[in-house]
Design a protein around this nucleic acid. Sequence first.
DNA 1: CCAATTGTTCAATAACTTTTGAACTAAGGA
DNA 2: TCCTTAGTTCAAAAGTTATTGAACAATTGG
Lengths: 120, 120
Amino acid sequence: MTLPHPNTDQISLPIVLGVLGDPTRLAIVRYLASKQGVPLNCSQFLDFGSKTNLSYHLAKLREAGVTRAEVVGTNRMITLRRADLDARFPGLLDSVIAAAGDDPALPAVGGHDIEVHARP
Amino acid sequence: MTLPHPNTDQISLPIVLGVLGDPTRLAIVRYLASKQGVPLNCSQFLDFGSKTNLSYHLAKLREAGVTRAEVVGTNRMITLRRADLDARFPGLLDSVIAAAGDDPALPAVGGHDIEVHARP
DNA sequence: CCAATTGTTCAATAACTTTTGAACTAAGGA
DNA sequence: TCCTTAGTTCAAAAGTTATTGAACAATTGG
């Protein structure tokens, strides 16, 4: 019940760049980065597209090695493969995320920052 | 007789990433970077594709703001827009070029390094 | 002027990408 | 067991991208 992911050394630069060169996927990556490693399930990206469409984009990100998806019950918990990407392409992810943050043409990251344990 | 280029502030992150997510164009950018700012004409990229195909890829790079093409006689002298890209997306180009250099799946950059003034 | 060099444009084609809705699977809770 | 929630798969449609060869334009050198 585990989904296929490339090993760190199988992650390909042109594939990663191509995958990040899509506004929807870039928004997903930005959102994941803003959550500082907290895993998100697919439904939390519904602002960025339909359920079917997200399934497609999240599969692309996973197959490229940008994200990791862990099966937990009926959920796929999704995280950025930050350490793996930093090991493979030092500085790349940071500069992409920083650049995306500065670009007013891209949609602002929504949500409630990194308030993980919301108090009632 | 000047070709259209985006201004620095018009350079778009997803477009740049998408354009770099092609092995031919990534090879062109690597090769330009290895030449340290020395302008190259299109014919010097013929290892990476046919003349027609290069015209296509070089136009993509130029329109994305990754390269600059200056018309000099019948030549288009091509340079990387390093300073503009660094200003717009700090660290991005450097990390891409470094990552490309480490990736054994990509073709090695050929040519004669930065020996600009070859002595007879 | 003539020929060679440099690169573009065009049309055709093939291949890939994105998006959609309907149908589906799989786990969890009542 | 039945229903709900979470997400995938499939096929179709639409759009985009890459590649090619033939024809073209523009400059330069003889």
